Simulated scan of single mutants.
Amino acid sequence: MRLSRIAIVLIIFLSGITKIAAQDVAIKTNGLYWLAGGTVNGGVEVATSNRVTLQLSGSYNPWTYKNDKKMRFWLVEPEVKYWVCEKFEGHFFGLHGHGAQFFGGFRDKRYDGYMTGGGITYGYNWILSPHWNLEAEIGLGYERLWYKESDRIPCIKCYERKHKNYVGPTKAAISLVYIF
């Protein structure tokens, strides 16, 4: 979580020292998160130059599904993007990070823990109108999870501490973007 806090402070600092003008700030939402369980999400992206932008996104899922199954979480994702041609248009490459806390389970187990990691991204941004864009993005990287695993019946003494390292896809987004 410490890495996520440092990234957030860095993004806020860098966005504060840049000149913000028209076409330099965008807000967005990832449609894939909405489709996967109605996860509330949004992000802000700020241009620091004609080819570099900084993005900070957040997601939150508080829902409980049928039969008391849930995977509640909050997630913060900072990212820096390098645009091949011009900001908010065409191809881009990026570096992204993640920090999350989660709780819940879908089968016979319950999980309560944290996740952090990051990776590289590639994406493309289509201009729909002067203010609206559609953006697709995929990322590969590393995730570290540490959590308590227990049976679905809550028991304070009946859990196992576990951790998991993951390498593979770490980001997928099809976002609707509004550029100011």
Rank of each mutant, 00 (worst) to 15 (best):
W146N: 15
L32V: 06
K157H: 10
K70I: 13
I156H: 08
G117I: 03
T64P: 09
C155N: 14
I12A: 11
Y124G: 01
P154C: 03
E79C: 01
G104E: 14
S129I: 10
I120H: 14
H91N: 06
Y65F: 15
K69C: 09
F88K: 00
G139S: 06
R107F: 14
A136G: 07
R110W: 12
D112L: 08
R144I: 05
E143I: 10
E143A: 11
G117A: 10
L134S: 03
G58D: 03
L54R: 02
I20W: 14
R72E: 09
E135R: 13
H96V: 05
A36E: 04
K109A: 07
Q55G: 05
V40A: 09
E89Y: 08
L35W: 14
T39Y: 04
L14H: 01
T116F: 11
K171I: 05
F102R: 13
E143F: 13
A22K: 06
L35C: 08
N50V: 05
T121M: 02
N50E: 04
G113F: 05
V177N: 01
C155A: 11
T29N: 03
E77M: 03
D112P: 12
P169D: 10
K157C: 05
N61A: 14
R72Y: 04
L95N: 13
V25K: 01
I11S: 05
L128M: 10
L95F: 09
S175T: 14
D108F: 12
N41T: 02
K66S: 08
I120M: 15
G94D: 06
W146A: 14
D151T: 13
T53P: 03
A26R: 04
T64M: 13
D68L: 14
G139H: 00
V80F: 01
E135V: 00
N133P: 02
Y60V: 03
A22P: 11
K19F: 15
S49H: 04
A36K: 12
V76E: 08
A26F: 04
F93Y: 05
K164Q: 15
K87D: 02
H163L: 15
N30Y: 06
L95D: 10
G141Y: 06
S150G: 13
F93C: 01
V40D: 13
G139N: 04
L54E: 03
K162V: 00
L54T: 02
I127L: 15
V46Y: 04
E89L: 13
V9K: 15
F73W: 08
A100I: 15
V46I: 09
A36W: 09
H131K: 12
K148R: 10
V80Q: 00
I11F: 06
N41V: 01
G118I: 00
R51N: 11
Y114R: 09
L32C: 06
R2Q: 05
I120C: 10
G104A: 07
M115L: 14
M71C: 12
W83F: 02
S175Y: 09
